[in-house]
Simulated scan of single mutants.
Amino acid sequence: MQANGEHQNNNDLIDIDPSPDNALEYMKAFTSAQATRTEIYHEFESAINDHANGIISVDEIQQVIRVSQEGFQDVSSDILRQEELLKKIGQTNLSNIIRQVQNLEKEKLEVTVKLLSCRLQAVQRPEISYQAEVEEYTTRRQQLIDSINDVMEDARAEMLEL
C-alpha cells in the first residue's frame, strides 16, 4: 500500500522483462492452474454423484460446493494474472490461447452445473424423465472438453517454441 492508503497499480509492483523465458514461466503457471482446475472438477463431480447416491448429506454437498467455488475462483484469478502478464510482454498469441480456455471453461462449468442438476432431479423425482436433458448436456460437455483439450495442445505446442 502507498502512503495515501491506495493500492499500488500492478505495473508498479512488477518489473516486466519480455524475454521468452518469462513467457514460458507464465505459460507453465497457466498449465499448472489448469491442471488444478481439472482436479477440482473431478472432486466436485464425484461429490455430486456421491450425494445423488445417498453417500454424502446435503450439508456435506453444500460444503463441497462452497470449497469448489472458492477453488475455481482462485484458479481463475491465477490464470487471469498469467493472461495479463503475457499481454504486457507482447505475447498476445499466448494470452489469446488463455482467453479461449477461460471462455470454454466458463461454458463448461455452466453446462456441468446443469447436467449435475438434472442428474440430481432424476434421482429425487424418478417419475419424471430427464434423459433427454442429461444426454444433451453430456454431449455438449464432452464437446467443450474436447475443445479445451485442443486449445491446451496448441498451448503446449507454443510452449515448445519458447
Rank of each mutant, 00 (worst) to 15 (best):
L86K: 00
E70P: 07
E107G: 02
S68G: 15
N53L: 10
R119I: 10
Y26C: 00
Q73M: 12
N96I: 02
A122S: 09
A122D: 03
T31Y: 02
F30S: 01
S46Q: 15
H51P: 05
E60V: 14
A52S: 14
E105M: 04
R66M: 12
A122V: 01
E70I: 15
F30K: 01
S117H: 11
E43I: 06
R66K: 13
R81F: 13
E70Q: 15
R99K: 11
K108C: 06
Q34S: 07
Q73V: 09
K114W: 02
K88E: 11
T36M: 06
L86F: 02
N49D: 15
S76A: 12
I56R: 07
I55L: 10
R99W: 04
D50P: 02
A47R: 03
E60K: 14
Y41S: 07
K87A: 13
T38C: 05
N53D: 15
K88G: 08
T92S: 14
N93T: 09
E45L: 13
I97T: 10
V113E: 04
L115S: 05
N96V: 01
I97P: 03
A33R: 00
A33Y: 02
V67W: 11
R81Q: 10
Q121F: 07
D59C: 02
T112L: 07
L104F: 08
Q62D: 15
G90P: 08
D59L: 09
E105T: 01
G90I: 05
Q100L: 04
A35I: 03
Y26P: 00
E105F: 04
A52N: 15
R81W: 07
Q91G: 01
L85A: 12
I48C: 09
L109N: 01
V67R: 14
E127D: 08
Q62S: 13
R81A: 11
V64H: 13
N93I: 05
K28P: 02
T92G: 03
I89D: 01
L104P: 00
N22A: 00
D59V: 09
A122W: 00
V111F: 05
E70A: 15
T36Y: 03
G54S: 04
R125A: 05
K87V: 13
N49Y: 14
V113P: 01
F72T: 07
I61E: 08
K87Y: 07
Q102L: 15
K106G: 12
D21V: 00
Q91S: 07
E84L: 09
A122N: 03
T31D: 03
H42S: 14
C118R: 12
I40W: 06
I97D: 10
E45Y: 11
G90V: 09
A29C: 00
L86V: 01
Q69V: 14
S95Y: 00
D74S: 09
T38K: 14
I40Q: 11
E39F: 12
I56L: 08
A23V: 01
Q69I: 11
Y41E: 09
S46A: 10
Q69S: 13
C118K: 11
K114L: 10
